[in-house]
């Protein structure tokens, strides 16, 4: 029984070694030079550090072409998207990112609009209620008004009847 178990263990080990050997060419394929599309996928998430409001993937300047080459180099060295973005932030500042980093004062960028919109919605709701109030107030008073009006109308009708 023990012998069978040991054989099974050897078989698994052999399979694992074979799998590892087979995986080498696949891993080698993964180190193929990055394509233009790979580079652009990263560059698209960054702004040109020099030109205003121009995404790095479409910026036509020579400087940007060199930055794209740098991205290509870093991708070929196995750096991740996040690492490459961080490299650009460290070198050129947070303005290369398409949004302010979620830290410190920058949180205001994300918090203020929803707060303002909620405040606007609350104000609108309040305005609706206020705009309805005159009607409610009027309807609350209406029984008296209506009663007197009814009394007046009935007296008037009685007068008209008498005249007839």
């Amino acid at each position: 029984m023990n012998r069978t178990l040991r054989n099974t263990q050897y078989a698994i080990l052999l399979i694992l070694i074979l799998a590892a050997l087979l995986a080498i060419p696949v891993a080698a394929q993964g180190t193929n030079p990055p394509t233009d599309d790979d580079v652009n996928a990263v560059a698209k998430q960054l702004y040109c550090p020099v030109c205003e409001n121009t995404p790095l993937d479409v910026c036509p300047t020579q400087a940007c072409a060199q930055w794209r080459d740098l991205i290509r180099l870093k991708l070929s060295q196995g750096e991740s998207e996040a690492e490459i973005k961080q490299y650009f932030v460290d070198n050129d500042g947070a303005s290369v990112l398409k949004e302010p980093p979620r830290e410190g004062l920058n949180w205001l960028a994300y918090i203020i609009p929803p707060l303002a919109i909620l405040a606007g919605a609350a104000f609108l709701f309040g305005a609706f209620r206020r705009m309805k109030k005159p009607a409610l107030a009027a309807s609350a008073q209406s029984p008296e008004v209506d009663a007197s009006a009814d009394e007046y109308v009935s007296r008037l009708e009685a007068e008209v009847k008498k005249q007839r």
Partner: peptide, 26 residues
């Protein structure tokens, strides 16, 4: 509100902290 804040926030950030940030399409 979203547009106005998006346009002026980089100016506020630069004034308050000296850090330039971009508010972009996302």
């Amino acid at each position: 509100v979203v547009c106005f804040w998006g346009v002026i926030f980089p100016l506020i950030s630069e004034l308050a902290t000296g850090q330039k940030v971009t508010v972009g399409p996302p």
